[in-house]
């Protein structure tokens, strides 16, 4: 999946470190050299956040996701609502209609029941609001110190509308890149509540379920959508690089066209972060056939979660799969994966 030369994993003496969970190259290597090697099959090899397979009623997608965000409660959400929305979004990025979720809880001894209740309530609210029920679950308690409060892992299934087949390798030169709204909100909202880092800001997480927005896009111009991704961990930069590598193309994007809230830009400025690397939980990136760009933007902007949708660049032929950006300053640069971690446990 990623081309840069790299050293092999040291399976004999090496240990997992935080960079293996950061969504960058180190994590890609861990997944490829350990999990893909052990589980190898055509679905995993496709490298999507979900996999599709045939069932008697059509094409079904399945996804699974783990949530370890710290703090558990942050402006705009909780680990519970995040788990529901995030799992729905992984299904929705295949253009699918999400149907059912599962949730399993790993809880640390001593965790306050009132917090657990609040997490479950927000999860229930999210599930009812989105119309996607949580129909099965599991509960485990581990000794104090063996987990950090609560971790949630989920699974979800959904059905893909007939005729739709979105694939991560489908981007073609000339296609346009649309983001559904301002980037970096979630990451900055979570960081603003981190111990030792607390700062006052009005920014709330963008955590939201995107299946409604996606349904409108699919209905209006499903055939023009090449693929969609939600730019979570690693931000827009990681997502564009993943697509570029999967599709064997490059991108040219325009810094001035990327929607970023001034508060988010300011927080990134003093934290020394690049908003392009910061996580989102309620945004999508769509690669779309150029002739459908205007229609797609209009459909997206008509939905509350796509009001600030913007065309930020286009796909170019590039065997080296570079994501290039024209800076607002007037120069050019690469937009790369982040090396190592920016901040752990953002989702």
């Amino acid at each position: 999946m990623i081309k840069a030369n790299r050293r092999k994993l040291d399976l004999k003496n090496g240990r997992v470190d935080l960079s293996h969970g950061a969504g960058g190259r180190a994590m890609g290597q861990l997944i490829e050299d350990i999990f893909h090697k052990a589980f190898d099959n055509e679905w995993l090899r496709a490298g999507n956040d979900q996999s599709a397979f045939m069932v008697p009623g059509g094409r079904m997608v399945m996804t699974t996701d783990g949530y370890v965000v710290s703090p558990l409660f942050f402006p705009g959400g909780t680990i519970g609502s995040l788990a529901v929305y995030g799992t729905i979004n992984d299904i929705a990025m295949a253009g699918a209609v999400p149907l059912y979720l599962s949730a399993s809880f790993i809880i640390e001894e001593g965790f306050p029941l009132t917090d657990l209740d609040r997490i479950a309530e927000t999860m229930g609210d999210a599930s009812r609001e989105t119309g996607v029920p949580i129909i099965t679950g599991d509960t485990k308690v581990v000794e104090r110190g063996k987990a950090d409060g609560v971790f949630i892992s989920t699974a979800g299934v959904g059905m893909v509308p007939a005729g739709l087949d979105l694939r991560s390798d489908a981007a073609r030169p000339g296609d346009v890149v649309i983001v559904s709204g301002s980037i970096g909100d979630h990451g900055v909202a979570v960081m603003s509540k981190r111990e030792n880092l607390e700062f006052d800001t009005g920014i709330v997480s963008d955590s939201a379920a995107l299946h409604g927005l996606v349904a409108g896009m699919v209905e209006a111009a499903g055939a023009a959508i090449r693929l969609m991704r939600d730019p979570t961990r690693g931000g827009l930069a990681a997502t564009l690089n993943e697509i570029a590598n999967a599709s064997k193309v490059g991108f040219r994007i325009d810094e001035e066209a990327i929607p970023i809230k001034p508060e988010v830009a300011a927080a990134c400025e003093f934290l020394g972060l690049d908003p392009l690397n910061v996580a989102n939980e309620g945004k999508l990136v769509a690669v779309v056939a150029p002739e459908a760009a205007d229609a797609m933007l209009a459909v997206m902007r008509a939905h509350p979660l796509g009001r600030e949708a913007a065309l930020v660049g286009h796909v170019v032929a590039d065997d080296d799969c570079f994501v290039q950006m024209a800076t607002s300053f007037g120069g050019g640069r690469i937009v790369d994966w982040l090396s190592g971690e920016q901040l752990p446990r953002i989702c």
């Binding site: 590039d318 080296d320 570079f322 290039q324 024209a326 640069r333 690469i334 790369d336 090396s339």
Partner: peptide
């Protein structure tokens, strides 16, 4: 080197910017 790798390494490629 890190700055050049992260932001500019495609300058060595003909199609840069």
């Amino acid at each position: 080197c890190a700055a050049h790798w992260t932001y500019g390494r495609l300058r060595e490629h003909a199609k840069a910017f």
